[in-house]
Design a protein around this nucleic acid. Structure first.
Length: 844
DNA sequence: GAGTTTGAAACT
DNA sequence: CAGTTTCAAACTC
């Protein structure tokens, strides 16, 4: 188990944020804007009954706490702001690749920031880097830094608070948009590639956009000037609801790397080597949240206080590699503590290091995967004015379509910038909650077609799950049950034709959640959504949407190199996914996926959009099912969303697990509603309680229930079931043993052809004799009876004695024995053939 | 595999 | 909320 994995087990309260930016090279322009409505659709809290219960109150209290949590080092929650930076293993890997491979060429624009549990090779940001102090009590945070190594620079108001075990990407500080536009390029966060691709995000109160700039191949790396003029007309930068009251950006200059910064970078590298404290770093990426009634400068995620980074903080440079097919995940307007994990969440920015970059790649652990061309989300409001600049050093020219960035401010006061892709290529931004059974996928559908496929960066992120986490955003609390000690790996080594990358699948459950299409009327109560939900894009449902996508689906997308979105304006992968249901759920945890195999449904009339359908009820897409007229797929996302809404309207807890914890003193597991059995005695699988292998409880309304502890019928059934199970096991074991014995016997009976002379000539058979012997064994035993064998052996022994008495040489003796053996066999064969003929004649 | 039984979900 | 209908899984033959 990796170091990080152990940490996961140790630090269940640490959250890992995985932000994945999907960026298709051809789709750099294909950025989607997340509308406020969509943001409103984002679950304020995702709660699981068990998870909530599992979440001790101690953690629950910390969710809203802010600055005071800084001193709570003992609490493994996000409130823990222990200043031990060394422990923080947040690596931001920004490899820049010049990979000109066809697949990569398109992907070249991708910048992936992924949470990686692997700490080995990645540089670590240490607390030492974060020398700045935030306005809040939170300390040891680095914000508004520009991280650049080599060609790519990531500069902007992101805060890395190693001390808090948090890495926060801050949106641009409150600088007004106009100022931002006018301000020096440093204030803009521009991703510019070859001068054609510019992604601008105006996240945060400040109007200053965050620009990920892919530097022109010819352009010197590190050139981060975000001159709006330079921004090609291909990109429209729209500031999003910058607040006038926001503080001006400070330290926007990203191009300049102060000596202090350099030292910090070094410190980071050093930090990697230094043993870290046990406390994991929590990485939190939050979009600006409406600060109604709340301090705009501080945000609490999962009990942790996210504070604005002070502008004083020196900028950090993070090298980012471009073509990383990953998705940035963030829920705009919502704070998400994605990983409740105890494990230190690492955020790895995986980039293909461009050979041109002289500077060695710097890694900053960030729980985020960034893919250029994707939305930049989850930016915490920060007082720091320093923008984040991301410059890709990709030298390969890429066809990038114009991108519009649209200001989406004004919703609940939340301010965030989003990038609107003009390409229709759907992008999936996967939000991974490591260790949790949830998969959050943000689907961004481009409006323009872009067929290029980007291979996902060979980044592997493994994160182990921990206990259920609770995340609070402002007044919102989100708790996510997490499968204990399950490792979540993100493997995107394969070049994928789809934009989906960075799959994590430790899930044991897959549940659905959100509408993929901007359906304002559909606002499911995510609180009631079952665990294992996945947010995914809806193919036909508009530009941007959140779809509830089974994690399996995501996995399939990632794993399947055959899924292609090319030339498809819609998310055609859905069909492909469905047809690929047999693919392993994920390459990582196949066992898990098989641990809970879902039966294929057989729905015929419900279109799999009612709770009759188990797939739908479990928030899963139908996969390899036998259903007819199935609408439980991405192709019918609209209908599906409506159905979800209908179900939730009818029963807000429709998608909650039915089996939850019972009252105190009762069994740990009980049916949430109880059964209503009348004729089955609750001893058949008709009964949901019995099916769940739990006894009926007081809330059941069953008649003639026999599913209680002392029930003799139940005991009998249990015994029978146990006996049957034992019998099956025994049979299986017997079969296995028999097979092994047969194999072993065959191996033993196979004569060994000696290489040298043997003392027993008759056993030394040449290859011909060996083959003959094999054939002999295949003779019907009726012809090779014991008597026949004895007679044969006697003949052979007699021949051997004769040879021995006549003092014949060994070779001659062997020959004589073999001849005798041949005679014997011929006799047997003749007898067999004769018998066969006789039998045939009789049958005739 | 077809038909029956069963109980949850959906409907009224 | 109760009664009825619909539905698909579980079960039986």
């Amino acid at each position: 188990m990796s170091k990080s994995s152990r940490r996961v087990d140790t630090f269940a309260s640490h959250y890992i944020f995985l932000l994945i930016f999907f960026f298709h090279s051809g789709q750099l322009a294909g950025m989607d804007v997340v509308s406020p409505e969509l943001n409103s659709l984002l679950p304020d809290e995702i709660m699981d009954t068990e998870a909530i219960e599992d979440i001790s109150d101690s953690q629950a209290h910390g969710t809203n706490t802010q600055s005071k949590t800084t001193n709570e080092t003992t609490v493994p929650m996000e409130t823990d702001t222990s200043s031990n930076v060394s422990s923080a293993e947040n690596t931001l890997v920004a490899p820049t690749s010049k990979d000109s491979s066809p697949s990569s060429s398109s992907a070249g624009n991708q910048i992936t920031i992924s949470v990686s549990s692997t700490t080995s090779s990645l540089p670590i940001l240490k607390q030492s880097l974060a020398t700045s102090t935030t306005s809040t009590k939170t300390t040891n945070s680095v914000s508004g830094t520009t991280v650049s190594t080599g060609g790519l620079k990531l500069s902007g108001p992101f805060t890395i608070s190693a001390a808090n075990h948090q890495i926060i990407l801050n949106k641009v500080a409150t600088a007004q948009a106009s100022e931002a536009s006018k301000s020096s390029a440093t204030c803009h966060q521009v991703i510019k590639q070859e001068g054609q691709k510019l992604l601008v995000t105006a996240i945060g109160k400040s109007g200053s956009p965050i620009v990920l700039q892919l530097p022109n191949s010819k352009a010197p790396v590190g050139q981060t000037s975000a001159d709006p003029k330079i921004q090609t007309p291909q990109f429209k930068v729209v500031t999003i609801g910058g607040r006038p009251e926001l503080k001006p950006l400070v330290g926007c200059t990203t191009n300049q790397m102060t000596a202090l910064q350099t030292q910090q970078l070094k410190a980071v590298q050093i930090a990697k080597k230094t043993p870290t404290s046990s406390a994991p770093i929590k990485f939190i990426i939050t979009k600006t949240v409406n600060s109604k009634g709340a301090s705009p400068q501080s945000q609490v995620v999962a009990g942790r206080v996210l504070t604005q980074t002070s502008s004083v903080l020196p900028t950090k440079t993070i090298t980012l590699t471009e073509p990383i097919g990953t998705s940035l995940q963030s829920i705009p307007g919502k704070k998400i503590a994605i990983s409740p994990l105890k494990t230190p969440s690492k955020v790895t920015v995986v980039s293909v290091a461009s050979p041109t970059s002289s500077a060695p790649p710097k890694t900053v652990t960030l729980p985020v995967n960034l893919a250029l061309g994707q939305q930049i989300l989850a930016v915490q409001q920060s007082t720091s004015a320093s923008p984040v600049k991301v410059v890709s050093s990709q030298a390969t020219a890429q066809n990038i379509k114009p991108v519009q960035s649209v200001a989406v401010g004004g919703v609940s006061g939340s301010h965030f910038k989003t990038i609107i892709p003009l390409a229709t290529q759907p992008n999936v931004q996967q939000i991974q909650v490591p260790g949790s059974r949830f998969h959050y996928v943000r689907l961004v559908t481009a409006t323009t077609a872009s067929s290029t496929v980007q291979p996902s960066g060979p980044s592997t992120n493994s994160v182990q799950t921990a206990k259920p986490m609770m995340v609070s955003t402002g007044a919102v609390r989100m708790s996510v049950p997490i499968v204990p000690a399950q490792s979540v790996k993100q493997v995107a080594p394969k070049p994928l034709t789809t934009a989906v990358q960075g799959v994590s699948t430790s899930q044991t459950q897959q549940r659905l959640i959100m509408p993929a299409t901007p359906l304002p009327q559909i606002q499911p109560n995510f609180t009631n959504l079952p665990p294992g939900t996945v947010l995914a894009p809806a193919p036909g449902g508009g530009n941007v949407g959140y779809a509830v996508v089974p994690a399996q689906y995501v996995t399939q997308l990632q794993q399947s190199p055959f899924v292609t979105l090319a030339n498809n304006s819609s998310f055609s992968a859905s069909s492909g996914v469905q047809t690929q249901a047999r693919l392993p759920v994920n390459g990582v945890s196949t066992t898990e996926s098989t641990s809970r195999p879902r039966k294929p449904c057989n729905c015929t009339k419900s279109q799999c959009l009612k709770l009759y359908c188990d797939c739908f009820a479990n928030g899963e897409f139908c996969n390899n099912c036998n259903c007819n007229n199935c609408f439980n797929n991405l192709e019918h996302e609209t209908e599906r969303l409506k159905a979800i809404k209908t179900c939730l309207d009818r029963n807000p807890e429709a998608f909650k697990p039915k089996i939850g914890k019972g009252k105190e003193g009762e069994s740990d597991r009980r049916h949430s509603k109880g059964c209503n059995c009348k004729r089955s005695g609750c001893l058949k699988n008709y009964c949901e309680c019995y099916e769940a292998k739990i006894m009926c409880s007081s809330i059941c309304k069953c008649i003639g229930c026999k599913n209680f502890e002392e029930s003799p019928e139940r005991k009998t059934l249990m015994h029978l079931a146990d006996a049957a199970e034992v019998r099956v096991q025994q049979q299986t074991a017997a079969k296995t043993k028999l097979s092994s014995q047969i194999s072993d016997l065959l191996m033993r009976t196979t004569p060994v052809i000696p290489t040298g002379g043997g003392s027993i000539p008759c056993l030394e058979l040449n290859s011909s004799a060996h083959l003959f012997l094999c054939w002999f064994r295949k003779l019907p035993y009726t012809f090779v009876t014991k008597e026949v064998l004895e007679a044969t052996c006697e003949c052979l022994l007699e021949r051997a004695k004769c040879s021995e008495q006549t003092l014949q040489p060994q070779a001659e003796a062997e020959r004589m024995i073999l001849e005798e053996f041949g005679h014997c066999l011929m006799s047997i064969i003749n007898s067999a053939g004769k018998a066969k003929v006789d039998c045939a004649s009789i049958n005739c």
